[in-house]
């Protein structure tokens, strides 16, 4: 049993990826769309994992970066008429640039101060999109742009491939010198600086990486839906991305991917709840936070299993890295 757990843990990422590759053949068209959205969200959530999980900088404006990526792609294709691939590259580049700019307030601010700044940024972007109608289409939305690849299915495979590479990269970043620097930042900024971590550079890299993934996810979002509206980038959306990171354990790459896909598909499973869906989500999150963190002091799935009384494999590392 213990061996099975260990084996599952070791190959969890590969198993998830194989399941995702098999998904188009076993799901109906609508279910497939949900899975696609799940994978697209997972790319964004992996970016947030670096920012929130590794470096401990909470952001509630992540939907705005997603919007930047998606809208830049859409505008470049519809209004400028660029090739989709060039548009995608420019969209990711611009989002990364703007996201790196967000690191500037983070040099001086921490905790709630930083969170409010990101909330403000999110609102600014949403209001700009809503009001710059000639460029963004305003409340009517933006449509009519081409896809990266002609078939939805190929876009999906491209997305899964990107997710796989990103997952490995994020995992390796977590174990690398940079990742350790970010984690030391989360635990104690002053101590990290004393140990020789370049705090500014680390924060900037963290913001840049997470913005880059948000931009990429935005490009894929535009590809999936073919239609962009400011309503999909509200503060509530940012909160649900936060939910995905937290439910994934805040440290684990596979956990983040699984939780993104599960939480994205929950509305379809919980269809009978209709409008009280978010009510249930937030309640689950609250109960999870309250029980899990108070009893075990850990935010991992392992902590939750312990809370619920499931047996666990032995030899679990004690530290939180």
């Amino acid at each position: 049993m213990v061996k099975l757990f260990k084996w599952l843990k070791k190959y969890a990422l590969l198993i998830v990826m194989l399941l995702l590759l098999a998904a188009p053949s076993v799901t109906s068209q609508y279910e497939f769309y949900v899975v696609q959205r799940g994978v697209q969200n997972a790319i964004h959530v992996l970016g947030l994992l670096i920012l929130i999980g590794y470096s401990g900088m909470l952001s509630l404006g992540s939907a705005a970066l997603l919007a930047t990526g998606a809208y830049t792609y859409g505008i470049l294709l519809v209004k400028v008429g660029l090739n989709p691939w060039v548009g995608a590259a420019l969209a990711v580049a611009l989002t990364t640039f703007i996201g790196t700019g967000l690191a500037l307030p983070a040099f001086r601010l921490a905790g709630p101060f930083l969170v409010v700044t990101t909330v403000g940024f999110g609102e600014i972007v949403r209001i700009l999109i809503l009001n710059m109608e000639p460029i963004t289409g305003g409340a009517y939305g933006l449509a009519g742009f081409a896809k990266l690849l002609p078939s939805t299915r190929w876009v999906y495979y491209l997305m899964v491939a990107a997710l796989f590479l990103i997952a490995i990269a994020v995992k390796r970043i977590g174990e690398s010198r940079l990742g350790l620097a970010l984690k030391s930042l989360r635990e104690d900024e002053v101590a990290a600086e004393v140990m020789g971590v370049d705090v500014r550079r680390a924060k900037m890299v963290s913001f840049a990486l997470s913005a880059m993934l948000a931009g990429l996810s935005g490009v894929f979002l535009a590809n999936l839906t073919g239609y962009l509206s400011p309503d999909s980038f509200t503060a509530a959306e940012s909160a649900s991305y936060l939910l995905m990171v937290v439910m994934g354990g805040m440290q684990s790459v596979t956990g983040a991917i699984v939780s993104s896909i599960v939480i994205t598909s929950l509305p379809e499973v919980l269809r009978f709840l209709s409008s009280s869906r978010l009510l249930v989500y937030s309640l689950v999150l609250l109960v999870y936070l309250r029980l899990n963190w108070v009893r075990t002091g850990k935010g991992s799935l392992a902590g939750l299993m312990k809370t619920l009384g499931f047996p666990l494999g032995t030899g679990r590392a004690k530290d939180r890295s």
Partner: peptide
């Protein structure tokens, strides 16, 4: 508990109350 986690909890509260009112 890490203040960040409690902060996330208050965000969840905000979503919860908003949807409670909506329902």
């Amino acid at each position: 508990v890490n203040p960040q986690i409690i902060l996330i909890g208050t965000v969840a509260f905000s979503v919860f109350i908003r949807n409670l009112v909506l329902v």
